[in-house]
């Protein structure tokens, strides 16, 4: 990256600020006209709106009138070996132009191979080969969508063969060399650290804090011999603890509550979001964070 280049992520992305949001999901479309106390922004899954007219399209327009919206993708397959899907990128750009988000994001993983879509996020090897491959593809994505792009650290249950660096080094190499931002999923950090035996607090100290613009918070499932990033339950107390550390020691940025399985009522989501705000308030000693939401 050229330090004088004024098109770099750090020059063009919005400066870090605090805000709290939830994901806009289909069961809550009817609630959109009701008050959503404590919600500063909404995140939408890009693929749930890219190919749709009718209700989803109208809901996005209505949501945009009330909230800043962020696009979060799950099918970009930035680490995949198949060529990037042109149709996908065109539709993503069209949606971004409609929504005008401060950034858009997807995962540092792959989700398709040989033209087959898995609809799941699969880990990449922490290798130089993977770094080079992903960095080149991020450049392509940025060129088409032409907005600040964040990569999320995904959860992973297996380490792929060919590891040459740590997860934190891999993440850092990719976002630095691709000159993009980082969406740090705090629950994923906790799940991965537990499953792969590293210290999540050390991990937080190793990622490029200046590139973080958003956190994800979510619940996980511990019914197996390893943790599963299920997005279907309340946030674990240890994840809240890690989140507070991230806010005080790493970056003060937008936080999104994710709940994608067994989606509860809006009331439950709003309460969980209040708990996130409360945690931020306790961490930062900033009472307005909770007062705004009350």
């Amino acid at each position: 990256m050229n330090p004088t280049d004024k098109t770099s992520f750090l020059d063009t992305a919005p400066a870090p600020t605090l805000a709290f949001g939830i994901g806009l999901r289909r069961p809550h479309f009817d609630d959109l006209l009701n008050p959503w106390p404590g919600v500063d922004f909404l995140e939408i899954i890009s693929e749930n709106f890219m190919n749709f007219g009718g209700r989803p399209r109208e809901v996005v327009k209505a949501a945009k009138e009330r909230f800043p919206l962020i696009l979060h993708g799950v099918s970009l397959s930035i680490g995949g070996l198949d060529p990037l899907k042109e149709d996908y990128l065109e539709k993503l750009k069209a949606l971004a132009d409609l929504v005008d988000p401060p950034w858009f994001s997807d995962h540092l993983s792959y989700s398709s191979h040989w033209g087959v879509e898995y609809h799941d996020l699969l880990p990449l090897p922490f290798s130089e080969e993977a770094v080079e491959h992903v960095v080149a593809r991020i450049q392509q994505v940025k060129k088409v969508v032409n907005r600040p792009f964040l990569l999320e650290n995904p959860s992973y249950y297996i380490e792929m063969p060919g590891k040459e660096m740590s997860e934190a080094e891999f993440l850092t190499e990719v976002v630095e060399r691709a000159d993009c931002g980082l969406l740090l999923d705090i629950n994923n950090v906790f799940v991965n650290a537990t499953n792969h035996g590293y210290d999540p607090y050390e991990f937080l100290g190793q990622v490029p804090a200046n590139r973080i613009r958003q956190y994800h918070m979510a619940g996980h499932d511990d019914s197996r011999s390893f943790l599963v990033d299920s997005h279907g339950s309340h946030i674990h107390p240890e994840v809240f603890k890690l989140y507070k550390h991230a806010l005080t020691e790493v970056a003060k940025v937008w936080t999104l509550l994710e709940w994608d399985n067994a989606i509860p009522s809006l009331e439950v989501l709003l309460k969980e979001n209040q708990l996130v705000r409360k945690a931020a308030s306790e961490a930062l000693g900033d009472s307005f964070i909770v007062e705004v939401a009350s």
């Binding site: 693929e47 890219m50 190919n51 099918s75 899907k85 996908y88 398709s112 033209g115 087959v116 879509e117 898995y118 609809h119």
Partner: peptide, 10 residues
Amino acid sequence: PSHHYELNAN
């Protein structure tokens, strides 16, 4: 096999 990135389309 699923060939579309939008899950429902499959």
